[in-house]
Structure formats: C-alpha cells, structure tokens
Design a protein around this nucleic acid. Structure first.
Lengths: 117, 117
DNA sequence: AATTATACATAAGAATATTATGTATTGCAA
DNA sequence: TTGCAATACATAATATTCTTATGTATAATT
C-alpha cells in the first residue's frame, strides 16, 4: 500500500491521448506497459496511468489512424509495440499546442496577477 | 455563427470546479450567467462554459457544501447568487495547487528539455 | 414585432475515466 | 519449489463529466 496522489485522477481526463502521442514521438516505439512505467518514472509517481484507461486509448488512437501497432514475441510473451503514423506525427504538435493554450487560459483565471504579462 | 475554439472542450474536464471556486474567491459573489461571461471575457472567448456543464456543477458544489446560494429578485427575474462557504474557502488553494501540480507533471512529459530545470 | 441577450434548469447522449476482473508469462525470494 | 510480485495484455461494469438539445421566462434591442 503506497500513498496514491489523488489529484492526478480527474485532471487527467482529456490529456491521456496527448501524453501517449508525445512520449511516442520522443521515444519512437513503445509498448503499453512501457508507457505507463515511463510516465510514472519521469513524474516520480505523480501520474500513474491505469491499464483500464491506457489500453482502450491506445486501441482508439490506432483505430483513428494515429498509431501503428505490431506485435512482437519476447520469449513466450507477446508485446504490442506502438509507433506514430504519419497522421500521428502531424497531430502531436497540434495536441501539445492545444494543451499549452488551455493551460494559458487557466492561468488567466487561476493566477490573474502573474499571468497578465 | 462564430468560430468556436475546439480545443477547450475535452481538456476542460476536471477543471470546471476549480474555475468556479477560483472566480468566486476573487469576486466574492456571482451568479451563474455572470461566471460564464467573466470567464469568456478574461480568456477572450478561449474558454466558453456551457450552461449544461455549469449549472449542474454549481448544484453539485452547493450540495457538497463548498458553495452558499441565495436567490435574489432583479425586477421580475430571479438570479441565484453563489459565494464560497468556509469549506469552499479552504478548498480553493488546494484545488489550484492540484491543477498547478498536474500542469507541472504534464510539462515534464510534453516539454522534457525546458522543464527539467 | 421579432430577435438577441439575460437567466435559470434538466434530460439524452457521448466521451473518458476508475475499478474490478481475467488470462498468462517471467523473475525472485522464502 | 512454491508462492508472490512484476510484466503484459485485454475487457466489462460503473462513475463522472462533459456536449447538445430542449424548455421556460424576462429584458433589451433592432
């Protein structure tokens, strides 16, 4: 039993796909479990992706043509590696810009003094 | 028909209550419609709160004890004014901190170079 | 007189998450 | 060698929170 940081839960909504696309752009080729470990690691347990959210999101991104998937056998186990399609490559920057723009607008509301430039 | 900025839609999830609590802390006492106009104004149409999201959120925050509500007659029309309860006052900073922490973690993922400090 | 803005509310539906469960392999420690 | 934790995938039931649509009604503008 470890202390779970609760605040990552509701806020995560809507940004999971952006996370997936970004880490895949940065690292090229990853499998689902690897993505969860990577995100957990660089946020120091701050963001913990649940499998019930991750796998459906990966499947949807693949179905929408943003991701390419290939299965690979590691010993007797099968991993599903994902990478960005061309469409996915084009979408990453846009997704990140959307997130940044959203955050800027939130700063206007949450920190009106400091963010009015 | 005006151009709606699409990216505010999905990303908004989870942050509406934080917005409501924050603007009420800043302005003291507001009614629902006023909140939508205020947010629309300071974000220059960037964030547009829909009534279908706002009113249920206000009702929930009231039911949870974060907000106090009182109806006021303006001419023949009735406004419902909201203000922070004591519990609401205590929750604002926490909510904002949660959002900021979430954004910081997202920066680690989306902008690893610049945010590693 | 008709349209837009103000002001509230709720219902149907969609999207996206949590939690729980299931299967199966691999590695490690008791 | 046995059992537990970690790895690796997947899906179903449920919850939350949003969008869109609809409804009611007053006030202001064109």
């Amino acid at each position: 039993m470890y202390n779970c940081i609760m605040y990552s839960k509701q806020l995560l909504k809507g940004s999971l796909k952006t996370i997936i696309l970004t880490v895949l752009k940065e690292r090229g080729r990853m499998y689902g479990y690897e993505i969860t470990q990577h995100v957990k690691s660089i946020t120091e347990e701050g963001l913990v992706l649940t499998e019930g959210a991750l796998y459906p999101a990966l499947h949807k991104l693949e179905a929408e043509g943003f991701l390419l998937a290939e299965k690979e056998s590691i010993g007797r186990r099968v991993r599903k590696y994902y990478s960005l399609s061309e469409k996915g490559m084009e979408a990453v920057a846009e997704k990140v810009n959307e997130f940044d723009a959203f955050v800027q607008m939130m700063q206007l509301i949450l920190h009106p003094k400091t963010s009015k430039s």
